[in-house]
Structures are given as structure tokens and as C-alpha cells.
Design a protein around this nucleic acid. Structure first.
Lengths: 232, 232
DNA sequence: TAGATTGTTAATCGATTAACAATC
DNA sequence: TAGATTGTTAATCGATTAACAATC
């Protein structure tokens, strides 16, 4: 007797989470192939360029439909269109970025955000000396607004990006949620508390480096250390 | 008959990948608890603060050893020490950052990098007008060096961070690998090709946003669209 | 002791993989 | 037709979860 409603825990409309997380990568590779005027690609080739196995790629695509031709492969432009359509790239979402330090500015000026279905509609910073400054966000230029404008700006957006110091992250998060934001990308270390129904993804450079570092140290000939030999 | 050498595919010394990827998060939460002078924590509490279930937390820790006291919980400082020790935080690794735009500068000036076991030992940028400029990396200040110094700087490091535009990423990656780097963190879109034995982790803001966006669009009342109804 | 909480087991679940029938 | 490649199945594998005996 399952505790969750039967059917699809951790899935959205029968597409596994793991598959959803790879689709943007396939899309990216297909964009590159189209730019090179490559018309057709096999699952083997596309998989290799995407860093996955061919079996995994074909299984992933099979959740969306069947887009290839047996004996031939996939039409690059057609498959790109199908995945883009499925991911909803054509219906842009509005993004607000809070904390316009180096990181926030990097996100705001990220090239190709428009091409991936996003519009920067608000930039918020606590530092009044930066308020009023313009940041080039792709084609357009967006003015930095003060913290007091957070709620108003957030109400015009569907996605919030938190690029503040960790100490401010939870408070910013609360205000975004209060303004109706249900999708948050945070760069701040630490776990954000959000009500049910709000999705948070976290990017933590320190965590990524520590994962890399662990394996690096295991391979390193300079380290006489063994895991399990915990000192105290 | 397995194709991989029998034993532990995708594992490092019997610690599952999924567990390894959560350990830095636990460490971070424990650091916070120690700063608040909280002496003891239960698996339920620590798990909640880390955004995982208590069962998962206990299972994760069980791969490293048994650090708690039944009926009581975990000593915060002791557990922190054990995980930090196990992750190797005490033996710093040297990091080179290539591409000192907003993103590279954000990584370089990331606070607490030292506390997590990293030292920035090299900053490289192609823009000669920025060469010579100093960037504050925690306690110390590091001078930006020209692209020509990449190999020399990389030979002094164990980890490479690529924060260049996508077009330069593969070439930078090749040069890092040639200089002996085996652990790479890249922010550039697209998959890097590396020889066997080199580990790459990729952070792609666009991909993260697209994953968030998909679920956001599914919930959105303004979207009449259904997956599966692919247009062309 | 009684209450609490760990460490571990066994069951379940989701993701990956290999293989192959279908078919261009 | 012969060769190639997809879409799908069934088996395997890894990760998660619930439950509980051990024990502080």
C-alpha cells in the first residue's frame, strides 16, 4: 500500500526527472548541429556529443514521442523543434534576479537566455550606489532597482534567481514566494525553506568543487590518506 | 557476465555517488550549527536542515562509519570533523580559474573557498587590458595573468575552473588537460571532450532554468499547452 | 526503567543498459 | 535486397524508503 498517490511519484506527466534534466542538453547540442548545417544525426552521434549513451538518449526521446527514422536517424531541425516545443522554449518566462554582484550580473548578461525561453524583467540590489545602473541583458538593457521594489518586480516574473550572499538568501526567498514566485534558482550556500509547491534548484560552486576534490585526492599520489582512517 | 570490472561501478571505495554528492551539504549545515553553538543534532533535525529525509541521511553517514549515539544524536563538532576529514578539507587543493569575466571573478572571490579546502593559485584571462589586475581571493590577492601563462599556472594546480565563453571552452580544457589537470569545473554551455581519467562537472545556468521552467509552465494557468501536442 | 534515536536490513522504486524486432 | 538505425522490451543496477532491533 503506497503512501504516495499511485502512478508517477517524482515524474511529470510520465517523463522521468532524469530524462527532463537531460533534454536541455540535447537541445543545446542540436542547436550547435543546426548552426553547422548538419541535417541528420544518429542516436549514437547525438548521444556522444551530449555525453550520454545511445541507449539512454533513445529511451529519453521515447518518452516524448518517436521522432526518428529507422535506418536513417533524426532530422536535426525537426528534432530540435520537437524538444524545444516540448520544453516550451517558445513561450518565454520572465526572470527576476536579486543580488547584482559578479554572479548576478553574470546571470543577467548570460547570452542566449532569450534563445532558451527567458526574459530578464527585473534586477534588484540592496546597494543604493548601484541602483539606477543599467545592465545589458541580451538585446535589451535593464535598470537595477532597489530592494524595496522586490515585491513589485517579482509579481511580474515567474522565475526568481537569488545571487545574494548566503545571509540574505532566506529573506529574499520569502519575499519572492510572498510575491507569487514558485520557481527559484539560488546560488547561495545553504538550503532554502519554502512552502509546498515552490520548486528550488541550487547551484553551489563550493559543493561542486568538493565533489571534484574528493575524487582528485583519491587519485593523487601525494596523498597518503585513506578514507575510513578518520582522525578524531 | 558484466562488461565492467565487477564490484563497484560508479562508486568510489564503496561510497555511492549520490551519497558523495550530499556530504558537502551536510558539512555546510554542520558548520552553521557549530557557529550557532548547537552541540548536538538528531538525524531528523540535520536531515530537515539539509533538505533530505532522515533515513537517507543515516544511510549516507553509515557508509563512512558510525558517528552518532543512539538515543542522543550526533555531536555537531565531532560529526563535522569526521565528514571534513573524510572529504579531505584539511589538505587544500590548488585551483586555477580561466576567464575572469563576471563569472570567473565571482568564483575567484567566493568567500569560504579556503574554509572548504581550496586555494586560488592562478587567474587567467585573454583580455590584456585586465592582465595585471589584482582580484581579492579570500585573504590573499591574486594577479590576473595572460593566456600564455595558462600551462605554467595550471601545472601548479589540481583543479581547473573554466569560466570563458563557450567558444573558448574546449581549447582551454585541452590546455588544462595537457598541463596535467584531471578535475575540471566548467560553466560553459556544451559538453567538453576529455581523455579517460579526467573528471568534468558542468554548471549550466541555462539548463537549470529550463528544468525549472518546464515545471513552472506545467503549473501555469496561463498556458493552455499540453506536452505531447508537438506542433510540427 | 522508559523514552529516544541510531545503524542496518529488506523491500520498493526509478534509472540504466543490452539486446533485438521493427522498419526505413 | 542488404545495411543501418530506431523504438521498445526485459534484465540489471543503484538509490530510496520504511521499519525495527540495538542501545544509549
Amino acid at each position: 500500500m503506497p503512501l504516495l498517490p499511485p502512478g508517477r511519484p517524482d515524474r511529470v506527466d510520465d517523463v522521468p526527472t532524469a530524462t527532463l534534466e537531460r533534454l536541455p542538453v540535447y537541445l543545446q547540442v542540436l542547436t550547435g548541429l543546426a548552426e553547422q548545417s548538419i541535417r541528420t544525426v544518429s542516436s549514437t552521434d547525438l548521444a556522444e556529443r551530449s555525453g550520454v549513451t545511445a541507449a539512454k538518449l533513445r529511451k529519453d526521446l521515447s518518452f516524448l514521442g518517436s521522432f526518428g527514422t529507422r535506418g536513417v536517424g533524426y532530422d536535426v531541425v525537426y528534432l530540435h523543434g520537437c524538444i524545444a516545443d516540448w520544453l516550451g522554449v517558445m513561450r518565454p518566462l520572465d526572470v527576476i534576479v536579486v543580488g547584482i554582484g559578479n554572479l548576478g550580473q553574470a546571470v543577467a548578461s548570460y547570452n542566449g537566455l532569450a534563445g532558451r525561453g527567458f526574459r530578464i524583467v527585473g534586477l534588484i540590489d540592496i546597494d543604493l550606489s548601484r541602483v539606477g545602473e543599467s545592465v545589458a541583458c541580451g538585446d535589451i538593457s535593464v535598470r537595477i532597482r532597489p530592494l524595496a521594489d522586490l515585491g513589485e518586480a517579482a509579481r511580474q516574473a515567474q522565475i526568481g534567481v537569488i545571487a545574494t550572499p548566503g545571509s540574505a538568501a532566506q529573506s529574499v526567498c520569502d519575499r519572492l514566494v510572498a510575491a507569487g514566485i514558485r520557481s527559484i534558482l539560488t546560488f547561495a550556500p545553504g538550503v532554502l525553506r519554502v512552502p509546498q509547491g515552490v520548486e528550488v534548484r541550487r547551484i553551489d560552486v563550493g559543493v561542486e568543487l568538493q565533489i571534484l576534490a574528493f575524487r582528485e585526492r583519491r587519485h593523487s599520489p601525494t596523498s597518503p590518506w585513506q578514507p575510513g582512517a578518520v582522525s578524531a
